[in-house]
């Protein structure tokens, strides 16, 4: 997963604890939960160069060797891997099984011999990483859940992550800042807030923020009532990410030439938030699941539309 810290904040151990509680053995709970409680940092290791939206085609190999697995392969966009001690890995334990069934969830030590973490820099200036595994030895006791169950565990972790996205505070903060800016800033002798088009834009964005809030609250309501949220959970994720991008883009237009000034620059307004958001928010419409794919999930699960048929002749990789 691609996560930019800075404006967004990174994911910490938020998803690991609950999953170990649910799927771990008593020994694993005893080993890992105190570490997590003490602040052990995990980086997520799902995405690979050829496994993005089609995550189940991930290739990193975990081959059995005695009581260990030997890991070989590469993870991409592993934010925080250069600081974290552990890697929350989805790895292929059985290449003979269909692609969804041969994956297991494994905790690797990022300081082990054979692990190389290299830097990738995002357009927003944040660091993420590639992580290479070259014959890295991991005890099989580090596998969370049964072998081959990694896909289901990953999906439930992703769902938790997407629910988290609904509580993202920045859209409201940025719109409130822009409204304040429009009231206080004059152009051609008149406050921006008297410009009819700017009034329309900010009113619309403010409505959008309300819709985001209502989507989030409805999701909580459905969870409380034990209703199926598989189709409604992505509403918040899709709506928030695209709203964040609209706010940044339209905020730039409202701020005019000042919009392009970075945090720390002379003359920068609103602490450079809008400029930073313009770049940072790009990630949100594909990080944590591509909105393009999630829309298909919504339509098929929520409205009963048929899935896209699988290709009879898969394209050779």
């Amino acid at each position: 997963m691609l996560w930019a810290p800075g404006l967004l904040g990174g994911l910490t151990g938020g998803v690991q604890g609950p999953i170990i509680m649910q799927h771990g053995t008593p020994e694993q709970k005893k080993e890992w939960l105190p570490k997590i409680a003490a602040g052990a940092q995990f980086a997520l290791g799902y995405t690979e160069p050829n496994a993005g939206t089609d995550l189940a085609s991930l290739q990193i190999r975990a081959a059995k060797d005695g009581n260990d697995y030997i890991l070989n392969g590469q993870k991409m966009f592993s934010t925080g891997a250069h600081n974290a001690r552990y890697h929350w890995l989805a790895a292929r334990t059985n290449p003979e099984m269909p692609k969804h069934k041969g994956v297991s969830m494994i905790i690797a030590d990022l300081t082990a011999p054979g692990v190389t973490v290299t830097k990738l820099t995002t357009i927003a200036g944040d660091r993420t990483n590639e992580v290479f595994y070259d014959n890295v030895r991991v005890p099989q006791t580090n596998r969370i859940g049964p072998e081959g169950e990694g896909w289901n565990i990953t999906r439930s972790a992703l769902a938790a992550e997407r629910g988290d996205l609904g509580t993202f505070p920045w859209p409201k903060i940025l719109v409130d800042e822009l409204i304040q800016y429009a009231k206080e800033t004059k152009r051609n002798g008149k406050p921006l807030s008297e410009d009819p088009q700017i009034r329309q834009t900010l009113a619309q964005l403010s409505m959008d923020v309300s819709v985001l809030r209502l989507f989030g609250r409805r999701l909580n309501y459905m969870i409380e009532k034990n209703q199926d949220i598989s189709w409604s959970a992505p509403f918040s994720k899709i709506f928030e990410s695209e709203l964040s991008q609209r706010i940044a883009n339209q905020g730039m237009n409202i701020m005019g030439l000042y919009g392009q000034l970075e945090q720390g620059s002379k003359y920068a307004k609103l602490k450079g938030h809008i400029e930073l958001a313009y770049l940072t928010m790009v990630v949100r419409s594909f990080g944590g699941g591509s909105n393009l794919r999630l829309r298909s999930d919504i339509a098929t699960r929520g409205m009963g539309l048929p899935r896209e048929p699988q290709l009879a002749m898969p394209v050779k990789k």
Binding site: F215, F235, R295, A299, M303, E308, P309
Partner: peptide
């Protein structure tokens, strides 16, 4: 195939689902 299996139709329907839910909750 049913046209509803085309992702382009999924997208139209998904957008409308979110739009209609927004109407409802507001």
């Amino acid at each position: 195939r049913p046209i509803g299996s085309f992702p382009v139709i999924h997208h139209l329907i998904a957008n409308a689902m979110m739009d209609v839910d927004a109407c409802k909750f507001l």
